[in-house]
Amino acid sequence: MSATWSNSIPFDSPKSSRWLLVARRALVPTLVFVALLTIWETGVRTFNVPSFILPAPSVIVRDTYGVGWALFGHAQATLTTVVGGYLCAILISFPLAVAISSSAVLSNAIYPLLVVKQSIPTVALAPILTVLLGTGSAARITIAALIALFPMVVSTATGLSSAPREMIELSRSMDASWVRRLIDVRLPSAVPYIFSGLKVSMTLALIGAVVAEFVAAERGLGFMIYTSTAFFQLPVAFGAMIVLGLVGTVLFQTVSQIERRFFPWAIGLAESET
């Protein structure tokens, strides 16, 4: 009964074979990517497509490289807006989700407002908010936060009410306080839901930041795309777009890795308990 059988299970997974597996899995996507780039490059060259309509990949790389260090400045400006808006959204969404999940009255008060807010396209909201808050970073962060808020609130509220019935009864039978029940039972049960909301919101915050930069900014990747296209510098606009994609991927992966590193038990929890 007390034998440590779980320690003695043979577990054959040398590091080298794992890397081989990763390399093999990455092979096909890489080949497809290279093939597409080649078709693009040769297509543009053979048909002499002007670079202000569709630049070749080589031209994009050359012109974007020509922007120099300023590119990092733009990327950093966008990153600040995204992360700032995202963190604000987290801070606001949590109390809202707790309120929604703990009282029907509060839920009825908050949900309709959220739905109305979510139904207004951010692109329409951005110019109005800029008038209200000025052209500074406050407006941009607000726009990013507003668009990221909805999925966070909804998924956190769902998660908080997802704790199994027995678990809630157990907690009640222990005569625990409401706050302890929230911290010890409902919040941990909500972690998988919270992270799915956090992942969706991360991509939305990026969209919000770029929209805000289209409307009012003097820096940022969105601003860079907007001005480059206005001056027919399409290769630079493409370059900014690619950097934007990279920033988005890194941010999304960061959230995903935080979940894997700190909440490994939460992965698969939501499915296994329903």
């Binding site: 027995e166 157990l170 941990p188």
Partner: peptide
């Protein structure tokens, strides 16, 4: 309870 109702975390 019938189910162990443990904290998986």
């Amino acid at each position: 309870f019938q189910k162990p109702t443990l904290l998986p975390w």
